[in-house]
Amino acid sequence: MALIVDALATDLGRTMARASVEGIAARLGLKAPLTRDEQATLLRALSPGLAVFVGKAAAEQTLFEVHVRLGLGGVK
């Protein structure tokens, strides 16, 4: 989850990024360490919320980069 928090922190700041990622993960019932499927699920769940702050295109770009860095392939 640290990598996801780092990616979101650029736009949202570390406090909001960490609280939001942990909050949404908890809502989805996900606990660290996350499996690859869980990571993908979490990224999908973060997309609409991030879009409220940076727009859909930038949100998708940020999360796509995380996908790649996590080795989940290029699937958005």
């Binding site: 700041g13 990024a17 609280a19």
Partner: peptide
Amino acid sequence: RVLRGGRAW
């Protein structure tokens, strides 16, 4: 306050 440090701040 919570956005501090981010570009959205």
